[in-house]
Simulated assay, not measured.
Amino acid sequence: MKYLDKLWHFALISISGLFSVTFSIVYTYVADVTDENSRSTAYGLVTATFAASLITSPAIGAYLARLYSENVIIALSTLVAILDLLFIYFCVPESLPERLRTNQKLSWNKIDPFGALRNITHDRFIYLICLIVLLSYLPEAGQYSCFFVYLRLMLGFSEDEVAYFIAFIGVLSCIAQTLILACLQRYFGAKETIMVGLFFQIVQLAAFGIATSNSIMWFAGGLAALSSVTYPSISA
């Protein structure tokens, strides 16, 4: 039974990964409805909204876990996702005007991910941007997939402390992706803002790597939040 549970868990995570393109679509929508001058700020607001969810959802999840089973929490999360889908379908207008929409049918050539990767090398600027994103996300993806477990097993964080830690990062990320991002973009520009974000990422990864106490881990979490200015700057 436990083996089947693991298989189901793996299958569900895999299906979730197949549809994990929400951010890309949202950024495309933002690009359609904003001009070049306000785009980076809008991207920052989008990512800050995501960070804001980190403030409340872990605490709510930890609280509900004490009252109900994991199945109830998963069912509630699924219901929220369905409501979100219905809200988008019925309430969010199409970003492109009618004259710019295409009625052409989808073909494999248009959605082929490997073809898209091959086309990246045709434009040097796009190639450099993709390389920056790849190199910044390689360590970050591995870090975020395991450091919550690391907090529990190695540093002895309780479920509540993990929730508070995520909320702490969420609050600082909201500030970083709105106020700090706007200031950096205004006084230094996009390229320098990207470099600042990558610098904070390097420092926070090093801090996570050498963390032997809770205080260092909280410090590293703050740096991780500050490094979140990178992606909105790259996208803009």
Rank of each mutant, 00 (worst) to 15 (best):
T34Y: 03
V171N: 12
C174P: 13
N103T: 11
R101A: 06
T178C: 12
S235Q: 13
E70W: 06
L223F: 14
F219M: 14
E98D: 05
V196E: 11
S16E: 02
R101P: 06
M154S: 09
I126K: 07
Y29N: 06
I82E: 11
V72Q: 12
S213K: 15
S38Y: 02
C183M: 15
A116F: 03
S77P: 08
A81T: 09
L45G: 10
V203L: 10
E192V: 10
A182T: 15
D84E: 08
A236Y: 15
Y164E: 01
G209S: 12
F10N: 03
T78W: 02
I132H: 00
A52G: 14
I234W: 11
T178E: 12
E192F: 12
S107A: 13
V92K: 12
V33E: 07
Q201N: 01
C91E: 09
G170V: 07
A48I: 06
G115N: 03
V26W: 08
L198F: 04
F219L: 15
V33G: 06
Y231M: 15
T34Q: 04
Y29D: 09
A42Q: 08
T212S: 11
A81V: 08
L205A: 01
F168D: 07
L117C: 07
A59C: 05
V72K: 12
F165E: 04
W8D: 06
P232Q: 15
S107Q: 14
T41H: 11
Q201C: 02
V26M: 13
A167L: 01
Y127V: 01
L138I: 15
I82R: 10
A224P: 00
L85G: 10
F157K: 05
I180H: 10
L83Y: 14
I169A: 02
R101H: 10
H122L: 00
S158F: 05
C183N: 13
I175P: 08
A182C: 14
A182F: 15
L96E: 13
F50V: 08
F157N: 04
D112Y: 08
F147Y: 12
Y43L: 12
I194R: 00
L54T: 01
Y187D: 13
F148I: 07
S233I: 01
A176D: 09
L106P: 00
V203H: 03
T41K: 11
G115M: 03
P97E: 04
D84K: 06
G17N: 10
L85P: 03
T47V: 13
K105C: 03
F19K: 02
T47S: 13
V30K: 04
V30W: 12
G221F: 10
C183R: 15
L7G: 05
L79S: 15
K110V: 00
E159R: 04
I202P: 10
T49V: 04
E192I: 13
L198E: 05
I25S: 02
G17P: 14
A116H: 04
G189H: 07
F168E: 08
G115C: 01
S213Q: 15
R186W: 12
I25G: 00
Y231S: 15
T28K: 15
T34C: 07
P58N: 04
L4W: 02
